[in-house]
Amino acid sequence: MNIVVLVKQVPDTESPRKLKSDDSTLDRAAADGVINELDEYAIEEALRIKEAQGGEVTVLTMGPDKATDSIRKALAMGADKAVHLVDDALAGSDALQTSYAITQVLGRTGFDLVILGSESTDARTGVLAAMLAERLGVPQLSLANKVEIDGSAIKVQRITDYGFDRVEASLPAVVSVVEKINEPRYPSFKGIMAAKKKPVETLGAADAGLDAGQIGLANAATAVVDFAEAPPRAQGQIVTDEGDGGAKIAEFLASKKFV
């Protein structure tokens, strides 16, 4: 089975995240880059499916040079190879454009299964899986907390507002995962060493056959008008319980008219 896992490098949520003042795009230099957490679950799921069914796992990342670190980590976890789409012309692409670019690259790699996280921690749009399924014309099996594959039949449990849906489809398909699906493995020392020798294909926009008019900040379908830091939360009051902690909260709630 030809499995492609999408991996996005995002700023570490523990470090300060900022937009740049000149073009209102994410300041990727200001924070450490890490694999988007949910993408580790996507990688894990891809590896488990490969271990059960055979096949090959390819990591696909669109992002700046520095995203190589995240690709190496995905390879160290056990993916077989990677494709890195990197080009300054892609900077500032919005979700519509990102889905276009990734679709084009998927046209080159081919796939039986595309697996990705259901949401990134930086932009949090949560639209990529839906956009890719629409562009590729394949089933959208998103928000999955369980995946079963039998030949070309695939079943997922999709989490919903009210519980979950059982969904059935045939491969090829796009699957997005939530964190309930598995527990990602840590790269082993052996895995880390092996990753250094695994092939990483680097593609520019032209190599990937991207239409220059459909990518990058200047052609984006959305634009940031302005932004500002939100006023910080005022320092709250913290008390230690001396047998009246509950009563103190009630007093506070009364002062705010909640009770």
Partner: peptide
């Protein structure tokens, strides 16, 4: 919502529009 954003995403591709979330 999680599904609302997905509907928005697919719609945006179908009609070639930009989408703003959250």
């Amino acid at each position: 919502t999680a599904e609302g954003k997905e509907i928005a995403g697919r719609l945006a591709v179908k009609i070639g529009s930009g989408v703003l979330t959250d």
